Amino acid sequence: MKEDTAIFAGGCFWCMVHPFDQQPGIISVRSGYTGGHVENPTYEEVSTEKTGHTEAVKITFDSDVISYKDLVEIYWTVTDPTDAGGQFQDRGDSYRPVIYYKDEEQKNIAEASKNDLANSGKFDEPIVTQIEPAKPFYEAEEYHQDFYKKNPERYQLEESGGRESFIEKHWK
């Protein structure tokens, strides 16, 4: 096994766990906060939009089973890469779409994938997802972890807030 990590922000972290958690080779998907200037932020602090953090997921995976490139491709299918102001019903800076890279290899993969998506013709608008160096990742409070398993009705309500129809329109 070759363990690696990836960090993605794409709106509410509740909705970002399930698509990755279901893939072969995924060891864990943890919800948290990254990209800001406050150490160990709380959900309440991040929600104020004053910490600079995004809600994100940190994925630990076996790269012998699933590649970082595969994860980036999945990422595109569960976010709106044309919306810099948030994702679906989740609005604001803490919900902006960002791929956080840990090294030059991840950066190159993410940038090439973004360019491929921009040239694919799938979207009429520019691809605005940011690709930024990873900063410290702070795990969210335990009640946010595996939300889709703990609160399936609420999760389904969140998912139906525009993400499902967007995915259906662009990726099915």
Rank of each mutant, 00 (worst) to 15 (best):
111 E>I: 12
89 Q>I: 13
38 V>Y: 06
17 V>P: 04
6 A>G: 10
70 D>E: 15
126 P>G: 02
68 Y>I: 04
139 E>Y: 04
171 W>L: 05
169 K>W: 02
42 T>C: 02
161 G>R: 09
62 D>S: 12
109 I>L: 07
93 D>L: 13
90 D>F: 05
71 L>R: 11
71 L>C: 11
38 V>E: 05
166 F>W: 15
142 E>V: 07
54 T>D: 09
134 A>G: 08
49 E>D: 14
111 E>M: 14
162 G>R: 15
138 Y>F: 10
79 T>A: 13
140 A>L: 01
18 H>P: 10
67 S>H: 11
4 D>G: 00
100 Y>D: 02
19 P>K: 15
58 K>W: 02
53 H>T: 02
30 R>D: 15
137 F>D: 01
164 E>D: 03
114 K>A: 04
142 E>T: 10
106 Q>R: 04
89 Q>S: 13
155 Y>W: 12
65 V>N: 01
65 V>T: 15
106 Q>G: 03
2 K>F: 01
86 G>E: 15
66 I>P: 02
156 Q>I: 08
14 W>E: 12
165 S>G: 01
19 P>V: 13
73 E>K: 13
92 G>Y: 04
144 H>D: 00
156 Q>W: 10
4 D>I: 00
49 E>L: 04
132 E>K: 15
15 C>D: 06
12 C>F: 05
165 S>R: 12
93 D>R: 00
122 K>G: 06
64 D>Q: 03
35 G>F: 06
88 F>W: 10
85 G>K: 11
64 D>G: 02
37 H>C: 04
6 A>Q: 06
164 E>Q: 15
165 S>L: 11
136 P>K: 00
132 E>D: 07
74 I>W: 09
91 R>T: 15
57 V>T: 05
143 Y>A: 06
119 N>L: 13
28 S>T: 08
93 D>Y: 07
111 E>P: 12
163 R>A: 12
168 E>R: 11
11 G>W: 07
23 Q>K: 14
102 K>V: 07
147 F>H: 10
36 G>T: 08
90 D>M: 07
73 E>C: 01
104 E>D: 14
78 V>H: 10
44 E>P: 00
87 Q>D: 06
7 I>N: 07
156 Q>L: 12
7 I>Y: 02
146 D>L: 15
142 E>P: 04
14 W>K: 08
99 I>L: 13
135 K>W: 02
4 D>Q: 07
138 Y>C: 03
168 E>D: 11
57 V>R: 09
29 V>G: 06
87 Q>A: 06
